[in-house]
Amino acid sequence: MNNVIGGLLPLGLAVGLSPFPIIMVVLLLGSARPKGNGLAFLAGWVAGLLAVVGVLTLSLDAVADAGDGSPSVAVGILRLLLGVALLVMAGRKFAKRFGPPDAGGLPRWMAAAGGYSPGRSLVMGLTLSAANPKNLALTAAAGITIGAAPLNHSQEVWAAAAFLLIASLTVLLPVTGYLVAPRRADVPLQAVMAWLRVNHSIMTGLLLVVFGFVLIGNGIAGF
């Protein structure tokens, strides 16, 4: 159990350090309906992560129940594929960072966050957690780690909860900070967003390289 959680924490950290949800939650907390939008985005974010982890965990449980034991070959292949996918995404991030400069500014869907409703914020949280390729790959890796481990259902729930907590901290903390002290939270949140807008490509690329090789190594070890 401890080994599984130890393997999940870095994956959760990598998901939590994704720049787009951090920037989005800062924008939503500065919108016309900050509390409703912030809480709705947090709910969507957690729900998206939970859906991916749950599907992978239950799928691997079913494979294990139908076979003779742990589905090590299937897990190894999945990890290899996810690792390669992360390295490809890392290459794209580095190409964007060191390529020709773009026009600057936020994407249109981010720039419009000031007018979001809580419903749209909920959908955006779901999209950035479950449909974003980078987060989908990392969260799938977490689900594979849980589903492939020899855990009972109660232990799987605790392991998934640990991953969700770490992966959601960078969204949870700004929302909580705003609810407790909105005026004090504004300045540090804006500073974080400004830094991420400049450095998010290189930071994300490095994370993807590290975890891409980790997943490939774990995949090879599973054969």
Rank of each mutant, 00 (worst) to 15 (best):
214 V>F: 13
63 V>I: 09
39 L>C: 08
134 K>S: 03
143 G>T: 00
74 A>P: 05
166 I>P: 09
148 A>K: 00
218 N>K: 15
66 A>N: 09
155 Q>T: 04
95 A>N: 02
133 P>Q: 03
16 G>A: 12
213 F>E: 01
93 K>Q: 14
109 W>P: 04
104 G>R: 11
78 L>Q: 03
98 F>P: 01
125 G>A: 09
62 A>V: 08
81 L>Q: 03
207 L>K: 09
1 M>V: 09
26 V>W: 11
81 L>F: 11
59 S>T: 10
84 V>N: 06
202 I>V: 12
126 L>M: 01
212 G>R: 13
61 D>I: 06
190 Q>W: 02
94 F>C: 00
101 P>Y: 03
123 V>N: 06
177 G>E: 05
205 G>D: 04
166 I>E: 11
17 L>Y: 06
82 L>Q: 08
81 L>C: 14
113 A>I: 05
64 A>Y: 00
85 A>P: 04
21 P>D: 05
31 S>P: 04
127 T>W: 02
78 L>D: 01
189 L>Q: 12
71 P>D: 09
89 M>E: 04
112 A>D: 15
136 L>N: 01
40 A>L: 10
23 I>C: 10
30 G>T: 03
196 L>V: 01
160 A>F: 06
70 S>W: 11
145 T>L: 09
113 A>D: 08
210 V>T: 13
70 S>R: 11
18 S>C: 06
213 F>V: 15
82 L>G: 06
22 I>N: 13
159 A>I: 01
37 N>K: 11
90 A>P: 07
10 P>Y: 03
48 G>H: 10
120 R>N: 08
186 D>C: 00
208 L>Q: 14
9 L>D: 02
173 L>P: 07
163 F>M: 07
40 A>E: 09
88 V>C: 03
